[in-house]
Design a protein around this nucleic acid. Sequence first.
DNA 1: CCGACTCTGTACCGATCGGTACAGACGATG
DNA 2: CATCGTCTGTACCGATCGGTACAGAGTCGG
Lengths: 184, 184
Amino acid sequence: MTGPSGRAAAVAVLAEVFRERGYEGASLALIGARTGLGKGSLYHLFPGGKAEMAAAVLAEIREWFEAAVFAPLRGGDPADGIRTMLAQVRAYFRSGRRMCLVGILALTGERDLFAGEIAGYFSEWRTALADALRRAGHGREADGLSEHCLTAVQGALVLARALDDPAVFERALAAWEQRLLPEV
Amino acid sequence: MTGPSGRAAAVAVLAEVFRERGYEGASLALIGARTGLGKGSLYHLFPGGKAEMAAAVLAEIREWFEAAVFAPLRGGDPADGIRTMLAQVRAYFRSGRRMCLVGILALTGERDLFAGEIAGYFSEWRTALADALRRAGHGREADGLSEHCLTAVQGALVLARALDDPAVFERALAAWEQRLLPEV
DNA sequence: CCGACTCTGTACCGATCGGTACAGACGATG
DNA sequence: CATCGTCTGTACCGATCGGTACAGAGTCGG
């Protein structure tokens, strides 16, 4: 019964491959090599082929963020939720060394294939953060702040990779920690 | 003597194709169809093939930004330079409907091929903006502000496309106009 | 009118693409 | 041991990939 666990392990590897090479750049040959799975196994786990692999990765990402980031933002102390978000995001993106697959898929032509998942991911994040900010005392600023914080995270990932300097990402997160949680 | 003008026209089309499909997604067949040029002409204009096409596009982008954005930031009135930058960026990215090719190339595996050009583009922009901000009165904030402004622009482009909502880009630019030019 | 040179359409190359077919290995159940 | 469903390696498919070769069309100065 290696079914679900095997698939989960494959999804984790797939996520890294898609992150590093993009959707088109992740060939089945490369995927096979990295996962250690032949085409037979691959198409047994993901009968829909490459598109289903990417969809599975997106679903897993969404579940992870839902549990680790969005839920803490929506429930409990809002300041704690924001602190949790910042810490989880810093860890998830490996301080700027790991890219955001959702952002990558949004940029290239495959956006149309996964438009719903991509938009849902960001829009859920944005509204969850806005909710926490509203409860934390930011009044009508909450919506704008939330949106700008997400753009800052995405942009910091792009710039960190473009300049090959993870410190860009760290500085962006530090600045937003001060901006979202002004109380000392 | 259609040489240089023909090449310039081809580069303009190439830029759009790469923006829409990414480097790997822009096949020679598609490039041929969009430019109206056969492989013979294509390889006559760009003997280095696809890599040289992308390099030519990157060079043209760099020249455009150098003249339209970086130079105004470095010389003349700093506030005017910043206003010019915001207006040119808004126009260039078509209010969020057009993507940043440099950012796209930075994310996928082709980054290594063009690492120097990509890093140069952002680093030139960052230092030019920081210079203007310093001269405009922002003291030691200038470096941080400049970097965060660039991340905001890149992130806003990603989010605008992910949510299929150019207003995200407009809101980000408006917010940064207020932040960089507080004087009314 | 002649080469010489620039340009371009077409045929073609080997490699690789994503995807399919299928035989057999494997483990559980009887 | 027989059987059945799950899993997997391998051979193969047509299509497309980026790139090359080359013949011929157009365009010059001489």
